[in-house]
Design a protein around this nucleic acid. Sequence first.
DNA 1: ATCACACATGTCCCTAAGTACATGTACTTA
DNA 2: TAAGTACATGTACTTAGGGACATGTGTGAT
Lengths: 181, 181
Amino acid sequence: MSLRYGLLGLLAEGPASGYDLARRFQEVLGSVWPAQHPKIYAELNRLAQEGLIEVESEGPRGRKAYRMTEAGLAAVRAWLRDTEVDHTLRMQSLLRSFFFWLMEPDDLRRHLDEEARFFAEAAARYEEYAKAKDRGEFGDSPQARSMRIAIEAGVRLHRTLAEWAEWAKTVPLSPPTTTDS
Amino acid sequence: MSLRYGLLGLLAEGPASGYDLARRFQEVLGSVWPAQHPKIYAELNRLAQEGLIEVESEGPRGRKAYRMTEAGLAAVRAWLRDTEVDHTLRMQSLLRSFFFWLMEPDDLRRHLDEEARFFAEAAARYEEYAKAKDRGEFGDSPQARSMRIAIEAGVRLHRTLAEWAEWAKTVPLSPPTTTDS
DNA sequence: ATCACACATGTCCCTAAGTACATGTACTTA
DNA sequence: TAAGTACATGTACTTAGGGACATGTGTGAT
């Protein structure tokens, strides 16, 4: 259901085609909610059938731009206001960390180096985005301010994970061996 | 595939039945990789067919305890060492934050209050776990130390998200209106 | 003795997600 | 004018995940 409301949320900013939405999903929402174009086109058709969106215009190359209907706007708002947040998390990085004790120390160090680098780079990318927003590149609309909040989560989250990976490198996995002297 | 290696990872600590594994998944891995018992039993059967695990003993009420085989241990290790980490993230909380501008200020404040509370409570639960470990309640084995690292990630992650939600409450979503005087 | 509960394993079905395949059009550049 | 690229929309197949349903057993309490 989240994909559905992700699409409606994006369409609340203005009309867009499936192609546009697929790109925007990849660019901005992709890091918190991945979606491939087949799912997007399918969902758009369902949404249109249910009257939550409607074709606004048809363009070249079969392009169909959708516009949100009143019912659609009401539906996103209801989702945001009335439905419980699904806090389910699925992080392979953390799943793996339960099994670090199965790894050779060298492999583990290498792994944590890579993890730290990955998270730090992601954090840096989000920070660039945040700076661009703060420079006014996305304007100062409520949408842009919302995005700024989301980006801030990205920055903090990935920075935290990078620090965690660095910290993890300092934790010895084997208890000190008692020298039987 | 992560469920598979989650199960193998748990079985690396010692023999266990599907029922045991389902409970342990819910308790310790559930927050980073949810799994329901039907999936677990199915995966165990597949794993046994492929020779990565084998039935160690049969107990009352049809209980089947599985033991990991050499091949199974090699498989988890190969997964940990050689396969790339899937960093795909799916966080509904963050997806929603892109659309905060569609919410009434009051609803948004309420929402962020709830989010902050949820994340803070989760962080506190993880912290309790961490303290218990540091008191020595889980011993000092490599497994326990691995778990400690995973728990630390839970603490930091949720604390960060709680702080983010608190911070988000202080961000005005509407640009200051120019009073036409 | 009976009842409730925790133990224990599964099937079935539906939805969500991911990948590969398929098709065609407008524009830009060599 | 030919080739490459970005635009544009889909179908088909496979796997993963979640919920409901089904079934039966040992144990402890009343």
